[in-house]
Amino acid sequence: MTQKNFLGLLLCVSMAVFAACNSGGEKKGETSTTNEPAATTGGGSIASEGSDPKGIGPHKNVELTHPLDEKMVAAGKGIYDVKCSSCHKTTDEKLVGPGWKGVTDRRTPEWIMNFVTNTEEMIEKDTAAQNMLEVCLVKMPNQGLTEADARSVLEFMRNNDGKK
C-alpha cells in the first residue's frame, strides 16, 4: 500500500468514527453561529452524557456561511475524494466507516471540526467519540488536516445534507 493510499485510508477511518455511527436525530435550525443547544436524538443530547456537544478542542464557535460557500464545498469534495471516499459514502450506507448522510444534523459544527483536527484527544476524552468507537470498532487516526481543510470538509458535509 502506498503512503498516499494509507493516509487516505486513515482519514476515511477517522471520519467514520464521528460521521454516522449513531442514529439520526431532529434537525436543528441553522444560524450563522452555533451558540444554541445541540440537536437531540431520542429525547437526549446528541452528545453522550458527560460529553460537550461542541467536543474537545479549539473550536468553540464555528461561523457557518449562508448560503454555502461553493469554493469550500468544492475543496471539501476534493478532500473527500482523495482521503475519505475509500471508507465513507455520502449516503447513510456504512462502508469501512459510517456514511455521512445526516452528520450535520447529529453533530454540531464545532464537534465535527474538533474531531477532525483534534482526533486523538476527542477519542481519549469525548464520551460521544468513545461511544461511536465502540459501535464502529475503528479508531480514526488524525489526518493532519489544516483548519481550512477541516472547514471545507464541514461545508461539503453541509452541502451533502442539503443545507443551503
Rank of each mutant, 00 (worst) to 15 (best):
C87A: 06
G78A: 15
L137E: 14
W111I: 00
I112A: 01
G44C: 10
H59L: 06
A129Y: 00
G102R: 07
K101F: 06
I79H: 02
K71E: 15
A75P: 09
A150K: 04
N142L: 07
A20T: 11
H59Q: 11
G55A: 03
K71D: 15
D161R: 02
G55D: 00
E120V: 07
P98N: 12
A75Y: 10
T119K: 08
M113A: 02
G44P: 04
M122G: 04
G57Q: 03
K101E: 10
F156R: 11
H66D: 15
N61L: 12
L10F: 08
G24N: 11
G44M: 11
K163T: 13
M157N: 01
G8P: 03
V82N: 13
T146L: 06
G42V: 10
T40C: 09
R158Y: 10
T108D: 02
G25Y: 07
V116P: 08
L64K: 06
T34M: 05
N114W: 01
E134Q: 15
A47R: 00
N35C: 03
E70W: 12
A74Q: 09
N61P: 05
A75V: 08
K164W: 13
K101H: 10
I79A: 04
G99Y: 02
H88V: 05
C84E: 07
S86V: 15
E30N: 12
Q130G: 06
N22P: 08
T40L: 10
K101Q: 07
E70F: 06
S45A: 10
T2M: 07
T104N: 03
G97H: 04
K4T: 15
W100K: 14
C21T: 09
A19D: 01
